[in-house]
Write a protein that binds this DNA or RNA. Structure first.
Ligand SMILES: [Zn+2]
Ligand SMILES: [Zn+2]
Ligand SMILES: [Zn+2]
Ligand SMILES: [Zn+2]
Lengths: 137, 137
DNA sequence: AATTGGATGTAATGTTATTACGTTAGGAGG
DNA sequence: CCTCCTAACGTAATAACATTACATCCAATT
């Protein structure tokens, strides 16, 4: 059983913004959407994002400089461990698909073991066009 | 046989800066190092990087917002096709190891095929600590 | 009450990337 | 030679993303 975590007000607001969005949001977009809730400065967003990422509730998309709520079903503050996670990002509609592949994880871990490299974070991002957008084109 | 490509002066300078560096460089660091060669503005660097990346001579490290010369041995302007390339980036010493794994490539391509996703670019980056730094610690 | 640590508020600054606009160099074709 | 076209270049301004610095607040502990 994974422990439920108490989120602070700012963390809840940022997580909520990401969960209600239809795609990844930049920190500054989140800031804009939370102005009415009292947000004033980027740091309020970045601090919350740091914690949410640490808790595994939010992922940062490096190739986009943006953030998404974790796609795995879980209640607020109730996370679960990820293996290596991959993202397929549609450059046309912005949709993001989060997935994970044990064989990929195992090969990358194997490479790291052989190289004596200790990985603390691994990023896998596919940029391209999703099935829906390809069909529409 | 892959065609040799003529690089422009700016492209050669930027590629040279990356090849002589001992690690990834940000666009602005490249700019600073090329001041004496007449560089004045970020765009000069970004334009050269765009082309070099397109030619496969340079890779962008998304998690670092920085660039490295391709590790594969090739003469200036003489590139070769990559499959999906992965990078192991040491957060301690900055060293970058470029590698490629057919099984990883095949699994990711397989996922994309099944999902109907057409990937135009795939990023794999391991952040952590290299063998040398782990031994030194 | 004093101390501690985490979270917060705010301003200033630093870093990375792009837009806009004008100029230059070189090849293709008349 | 001259015009058209295209790719590359030069420069300035601005936009977008992220961090540093410093003060304050508050709850838990001693
Ligand atoms: Zn997730
Ligand atoms: Zn799409
Ligand atoms: Zn390469
Ligand atoms: Zn190292």
């Amino acid at each position: 059983m994974t422990a439920t975590r108490d989120l602070t007000r700012n963390q809840s607001l940022v997580l909520g913004a990401l969960e209600h969005a239809d795609g990844p949001l930049s920190a500054y977009t989140i800031l804009d959407r939370l102005r009415d809730a009292g947000f004033r400065a980027p740091l309020q967003v970045y601090r919350a994002l740091d914690k949410l990422t640490e808790f595994g509730l939010v992922h940062r998309l490096e190739s986009l400089n943006a953030f998404v709520a974790c796609a795995h079903g879980h209640d607020h503050g109730h996370a679960h461990a990820h293996g290596i996670v991959a993202f397929a990002i549609c450059d046309t509609c912005g949709k993001v698909d989060e997935f994970s592949d044990d064989e990929v994880t195992s090969r990358l871990n194997g490479w790291a073991r052989d190289a004596g490299f200790r990985a603390s974070k691994t990023t896998i991002e596919l940029r391209g066009e999703c099935a829906g957008c390809l069909a529409a084109a």
